[in-house]
Write a protein that binds this DNA or RNA. Structure first.
Length: 263
DNA sequence: AAGTTGTACAACCGCAGGCAG
DNA sequence: CCTGCCTGCGGTTGTACAACT
């Protein structure tokens, strides 16, 4: 199959966008939407290829884009999601409203990767899920402030994610994160020791949370990635990617009650 | 002050997958 | 099933600016 080059036509502009071009693109999309990116520049009167227009809109002009530095909470989320998902920037971006995959990728390469490389390398604490009786249980310990780089106030970060990141700190402490050199993004070995844990003393409901220091009965331990996939499949009735959403739900909603799948 | 190096981020490139004809 | 188009994704590059020598 022969693929048509993106910007095969001569005369199409490349490089940084001007304010005028931005304005044309914004007003066109506000009026007509962006049904067909390939046709859009022609219809809008832009000397750009559709790909460039799409990128500009997605990464910069979209009204729901959150500008400014990443908060320490967002950075922690990126680090931990990257540990789970690897370089799946779009999947990570999906968990950070207002942030784009491109932006996250840049932040990772410029800030976070270096920070991790400079930190001490320790074993990763495996995520563990415990059942608990109270969503505001005292088993939820307040996370320590992180040593992230300068950032804007976290107040503009959604409260749900702030809450989620607090809970996330219970799962994998930041100082336990290994550098990329010694901890490949994600592979089967990561899951092989993952356990879903269960706190028998506080388990009466279907309210679940995650902890590093709880116990689990054997039936709630994942011994292999297949087992995890099966559980995540059962949970979502979908695929492994949705399995990631399963983990995400647990991570970020651990302050709430979560209906358990029937394992 | 000038040159060099490092950093941050916008933008580009090419590939893969979905989908319609 | 095949073909071609479109979109989304991740890797990479280009460039402006800051920091350093």
């Amino acid at each position: 199959m022969v693929r048509a080059p993106c910007c095969e036509k001569m005369g199409l502009k490349k490089g940084p966008w001007t304010q005028e071009e931005d304005q044309i693109l914004i007003s066109y999309i506000q009026k007509h939407g962006h049904g067909n990116w390939r046709a859009l520049p022609k219809l809008a009167g832009l000397l750009r290829c559709g790909k460039s227009c799409r990128l500009r809109w997605i990464n910069y002009l979209r009204p729901d884009i959150k500008r400014g530095n990443f908060s320490s909470e967002e950075e922690e989320i990126i680090i931990k999601m990257h540990e789970l998902l690897g370089n799946r920037w779009s999947a990570i971006a999906a968990k950070l409203p207002g942030r784009t995959d491109n932006e996250i990728k840049n932040v990772w390469h410029t800030h976070l990767k270096k920070r991790l490389l400079n930190s001490d390398t320790k074993r990763v604490s495996k995520p563990r899920i415990i059942k608990r009786s109270d969503s505001n249980s005292s088993t939820v310990t307040q996370s320590e402030p992180t040593s992230s780089s300068a950032c804007t106030s976290s107040s503009d970060f959604s409260s749900s994610f702030s809450e989620g990141s607090k809970n996330m700190d219970k799962i994998i402490k930041s100082e336990d994160i290994e550098s990329e050199e010694t901890m490949p993004p994600i592979d089967e070995s990561f899951w092989s020791e993952a356990t879903v844990e269960y706190e028998s003393s506080t388990m009466p409901s279907n309210s679940w949370a995650i902890s590093n220091d709880q116990f689990a009965p054997p039936q709630y331990q994942f011994n292999s990635v297949e087992t995890f996939q099966q559980h995540s499949f059962d949970y979502n009735g979908s695929n492994f990617d949705d399995g990631m959403d399963f983990w995400y739900d647990i991570f970020f909603r651990s302050g709430e009650s979560i209906e358990l799948p029937e394992f």
